[in-house]
Computed example of a mutant assay.
Amino acid sequence: MKIFSGTFDVLEKGIQYSSQNQKMIANNIANVDTPNYKTQHASFSSFLKKETKTLQAHVTDHKHIQFSGGDRRKVTDGALASNYNHNGNNVDIDKEMALLAENQIFHSAVMDRLNGKFNSLKTVVRGGK
Rank of each mutant, 00 (worst) to 15 (best):
K50R: 13
Q22C: 03
N87Q: 05
R126Y: 15
F106R: 02
G70K: 07
T123W: 13
A26F: 08
R73Q: 14
L48V: 11
T76V: 15
F106I: 00
L11V: 02
N115D: 14
K23F: 13
F44V: 02
N119I: 11
S120M: 14
N89V: 06
Y17K: 04
T52I: 08
K117S: 13
M111G: 01
G70Q: 08
R73L: 15
T60V: 07
T52L: 08
R73I: 11
G14A: 02
Q16N: 02
E102H: 01
V59W: 04
H62Q: 10
Q66T: 10
Q16C: 00
S5T: 13
A42H: 07
V75R: 00
S120W: 04
S120G: 12
I29A: 05
V10H: 02
G88Q: 09
M1V: 14
V32H: 08
S68T: 12
I29P: 03
F44I: 04
H107I: 00
A57S: 07
N21E: 10
L100E: 04
M97G: 09
A79L: 03
S45D: 15
K38L: 05
N27E: 14
K23S: 12
S18R: 00
V124M: 15
V125A: 15
G70C: 07
E51T: 03
S120D: 15
D71M: 09
V59H: 07
T39C: 12
V91S: 10
V75T: 13
S82W: 00
F44K: 03
G127M: 10
K38V: 08
D61F: 04
K38Y: 01
L114K: 10
F4T: 09
A81T: 13
S108G: 11
S45L: 06
K95C: 05
D92E: 09
R113F: 03
D61L: 04
T76Y: 10
N87P: 09
A30T: 10
L121C: 13
A81Y: 04
D94A: 09
F4Y: 11
T39D: 05
D61W: 05
N115H: 11
L121Q: 14
K117N: 08
H107S: 10
F47T: 03
L100K: 07
N90W: 08
K74Q: 12
K23W: 08
A79K: 01
M111W: 02
Y37T: 12
I15T: 00
N31S: 11
M24A: 12
D33C: 06
M111R: 03
N36V: 13
Q20I: 07
S68A: 11
V125Q: 10
N27D: 14
V10A: 06
P35R: 10
A26H: 06
K53T: 05
T34Y: 12
N28I: 09
A26P: 06
K53F: 01
